[in-house]
Design a protein around this nucleic acid. Structure first.
Lengths: 167, 167
DNA sequence: ATAATTTCCTACTAAATTACTCAGGAATTA
DNA sequence: TAATTCCTGAGTAATTTAGTAGGAAATTAT
């Protein structure tokens, strides 16, 4: 059993979006800098996440990515199977050359196992991790260290809009 | 998330041992032929299974492998982590360059997730699959098709011993 | 004693996957 | 118009997977 870096990156990045969800879109440049993942690689991963309908991209300055659903409605299984290829079951299903029922036997075994695995992972939602006590504070603290002022930026935008409405 | 062929082969082969457990050691040649896995590759996998204390090898004619514990005391997690390398957690633990607590955050996330995953898989024992209704009959039927007379062979041995004890 | 059968061990290799880099295009905002 | 961001595709080095090859050591049957 292997939890590939691909899947890890995917979930970690989605965690990041979940934490900064109320503060506007998150840029891949920020995630790249904070987590030490190459920007282009992140772009490829997010291309898959977007195609799976998990995130939405916003182009242009001030843009970035945001979750397309609330984090309580996104589970780990979805993320991993969007980014990684799906768990593939026995050869049997591909080649279809079941010999005397034997192949079908192990086929069923793996079907059941991967189903149960999927069920298990889909029972864990993103917000279950993102909303754990103390995490938000930690995230803000870390953002400051990494020179990532997403919340401050958001606040500045709000103030600018207020200023505009006055003039 | 990927369930590598390595892990699949491992579990499938162990299933085979579990099913034929009461009929003496199972040769890798039999498994190789039945499941279409290369013999040398199986040998490598079983080397790992043996080092993990899951199977015992018996050399010479009539030899093979047998489970070193009853199949009810062997679980899927053990097999997979014996054959596959272990689930590795974030880079953090390796390089130890946690920046401002951020890396440690995702580290904890993955630790928890992989722990839960491991717990889940270790809750599924080998005999849970091997002793499902109808499987034993299917296995015997399949063995005949593949020219695999392990039960017959065992019976012959018993008869020979009886014959010897008479003379 | 010899031959056959099996595990056991090590080193090599082709194919696939992973984790990137690079080079640019398209949309949006300042 | 310039800057910023997403978006796309093509290429690439390192690693892993899945398998070959060749043999040594232990055991049993003849």
């Amino acid at each position: 059993m292997r939890l590939s870096t691909k899947g890890r990156y995917g979930v970690t990045a989605m965690m990041d979006l979940a934490i900064h969800d109320n503060a506007g879109p998150v840029t891949l440049a920020d995630i790249s800098q904070c987590q030490g993942i190459s920007l282009s690689y992140l772009e490829q991963l997010f291309s898959k996440l977007r195609k799976a309908g998990l995130v939405e991209g916003v182009r242009g300055p001030g843009g970035g990515y945001r979750l397309s659903r609330p984090s309580s409605e996104i589970n780990i299984a979805e993320i991993i199977s969007a980014v990684d290829e799906k768990v593939d079951v026995t050869r049997c299903s591909k080649e279809g050359n079941c010999q005397g029922g034997e192949r079908c036997l192990t086929h069923d075994l793996w079907m059941e196992l991967s189903n149960r695995l999927y069920e298990f992972l889909s029972g864990i939602s993103l917000d279950q991790f993102a909303n754990r006590p103390g995490i938000h504070e930690l995230a803000i603290q870390r953002d400051k260290i990494n020179g990532r002022f997403i919340l401050a930026r958001r606040q500045a935008e709000v103030l600018q809009q207020q200023a505009r409405s006055i003039t």
